[in-house]
Every structure is written in structure tokens, then in C-alpha cells.
Computed example of a mutant assay.
Amino acid sequence: MTVLSSTAVEEAAVPAPTRRRRTWSAYWLIAPGVVWMALFLVVPILMIVYVSFWTQTTFKIEPVLTMRSWQAFFGSDTYLGALWTTIRIWLIVLCTTFLVGYPTALFVGLFVRNKTLANALLVLCVIPFWTSFLIRVLAWRPMLGKEGAINIILQALHVTSAPIDALLFTELSVIIGMTQIYCVFMVGPIAFMLGRIDPNVIEAARDLGAGFFRIFRTIILPLSMPGVIVGAIFVSVMVLGEFATASALSGRKVNMLGNIIVTQVGSLKWAFAAVVGVILTVLMGVVVAAFLRVVDLRREL
């Protein structure tokens, strides 16, 4: 004998015309969002894919389908090197933002009991965003230069005897700048998830004799994983599409896929820029899909 839930019984009692009206009402509610996403996301992406197969000549582009632009990308060590550089910098920045952001979020979300103080600390993390993005990037130049603040402090503390040249116009400077700029996108979601943990659960674990590291490993880290995944998605999407930070802090010595797109568009090579754009979009899609496989955000949030 099948036992029906009260919800199923109530739904079965609703007349068929009423159920159909409810269904159409739901469709009308999502229609504006579907139309918006189709016009401003799906159609542009399809257009970029289409343009990537156009024939590019020196001074013009023709809608004649060809694979030349794709062959030029995958047949060049320079462009493949830029792809690897983008992936490498993304992985490093993802790790550094997590290593810097998680302890900060742990302190704000779990150890600060006063909610007003916790909110104030999160606002302090957001204060740099009150200024222009370009100003925040260029502000690292006087910090990292040979006569910058960091080198002066290191020499004053007798840590180094001479200025460190590798701090500016290198890949290291790009990583430092991106870590500082995007760390807050890791801190926010993690602090939010840590703030939802019931203190009684941690207290019960302590009463049972668990130490901090065991509590962290078995309770805090698993419960904060949705925030880690959300932060990782934010950081990944922004770092993979970066071009300004790499250009400003590396002296154009570090080429990422975003820098190639800007250069190709400036040279009116739309087909090749579209190829790089498609590759970057696919890369972002794979990364986001991989993160979403780790944690079911719809269930956890």
C-alpha cells in the first residue's frame, strides 16, 4: 500500500486547469531572465565562436569559414605559452588567496563573537574597492620597486643587503598584486559560511575531548567548503580573464590570454581574438564545472 505525503495529496486535489495555470505562471516568471541570458550571453558567445572561423587578412576580415586562426594559435609556442602562463598564475593565485583568506575568514567568522565588530572587519576588507581598480594595481609599483617601501624595510631590518629586483616587473609581482586584489572574494563567502556554524556543535566536540585541529578537520573545514568553492569560483573567473594587472605589474613581460585578446583587438584581428576568447571561455567553464562537482551549492546554501 502506497502512502502519499500531505503535499502530494494536496497537489492531487487541485483541479487540472489550476495546475496548468500555475505552470504557465512559473514559465512567465522565468521568461525575462531566459530572454536576457539568451540575448546577452548565449547569442554573443555563439557569435564569437562563429567569428573565430572567419578568414582574417592583413587589413580586413571576411565571413569565409576557415581553421587558419585556430591553427595559428595551437601551432605557436608563444600562444600556447600564454595559455600555460594563465593556468599557472591562476593556480598560484587561487592557492595564495586561500592561504591568506581562510585564516582571515576563520578569525572574522568564528572567533569574533561581536557581530558588529565582525561586520566592521569585513567592511575594512572591502575598503580598497572604494578606489579605482587601476589605482589599486599601480599602487603596487612604488611598493615593489627597487627603491620601494618593501625593499627599504627589508634593508632597514638587515634582511637583505641590496634591493630585490624580482619584486617588480616579474611574474611574482603579478601574483602579489592579484592576491591582494582578489583575496576579499575568498574571505567573504568563507566568513559567511563560518558564521552559520552552530557554536554548540564546536562546544560539544570540545566536551568530547577533540582538540582544535581535529575540530577544524572534521567540523569547521567541511562545513565551510561551500564558501571555499564560491570564493574559488569568484577568484578563478576574475584571474583567468585578467589583463590589466599582468600588463601594469610585469611591464608587459607576462602574457596572459586576456593580454592577447586586448592586443589582437587593438590590431583589428577579430578572428584570432575570437579564438582566444573561445578558449578562455571553455577554460572558465571547465574550471567552474569542476568546482561545482566538489560541492552541491544548491543543497548546501
Rank of each mutant, 00 (worst) to 15 (best):
L134M: 11
G101N: 05
C125L: 12
N114W: 06
L29Q: 11
R299A: 11
I202Y: 01
T18P: 02
F40V: 15
S52G: 03
T96H: 12
L110S: 13
P17E: 07
N259L: 11
G266D: 08
G241H: 08
C125Y: 11
Q264T: 09
E171T: 09
V108P: 06
S173Q: 03
T104Q: 01
P163H: 10
F213S: 14
M256H: 02
F291H: 05
I260M: 05
I181N: 01
V123P: 05
R141D: 00
G145L: 06
W130E: 14
G231R: 12
H158L: 02
M143S: 04
V201Q: 06
G109S: 07
N151K: 07
A38V: 10
V126T: 02
G75T: 05
M178Y: 13
E242Q: 06
Y50T: 03
L167G: 03
F234A: 07
F212H: 06
I219N: 00
P128D: 07
I153T: 09
A210S: 14
L223V: 07
E242V: 08
W70I: 14
A31W: 13
V184K: 02
T116W: 14
A162M: 12
S52L: 09
A166E: 11
L292P: 04
L157D: 08
I127A: 08
V9N: 01
S6K: 11
T131F: 05
V239P: 09
I48D: 03
V276W: 01
P103K: 01
L39E: 00
V288K: 01
I150H: 03
I152R: 07
V254M: 09
P32V: 00
G277L: 07
L29V: 11
R21Y: 10
I153V: 08
P128H: 02
T55A: 03
L29N: 11
L157A: 14
E62T: 15
M178C: 00
S224P: 12
V93T: 12
F59M: 13
F98M: 13
F107D: 04
P44W: 02
L223N: 02
V294A: 10
R19F: 05
G258P: 05
R299G: 13
Q155T: 12
I153Y: 09
G227L: 01
L221Y: 13
L221P: 15
F216A: 12
A13Q: 08
S25Y: 02
L138V: 14
D207N: 14
R22H: 13
T55F: 01
L283D: 10
I135R: 04
I220M: 00
T179M: 06
L80R: 09
I233G: 01
G211F: 00
A191E: 15
K60S: 15
E10S: 14
R298N: 12
E11W: 11
E11K: 13
V64W: 05
I175K: 03
T58V: 13
R299K: 05
V287R: 01
L99N: 06
T23N: 03
L240T: 00
V64D: 07
L121I: 01
T18A: 10
A149G: 07
R22A: 13
L292H: 07
I164H: 09
I279V: 05
I176R: 06
A31Q: 09
Q264N: 05
V51R: 14
T218K: 06
V201C: 05
M186S: 07
R293V: 03
A290G: 08
T245D: 04
A274F: 12
G101Q: 00
T160Y: 04
R141H: 00
T85V: 10
L221K: 05
K115N: 13
S6W: 08
G195T: 09
V230Y: 04
F74I: 12
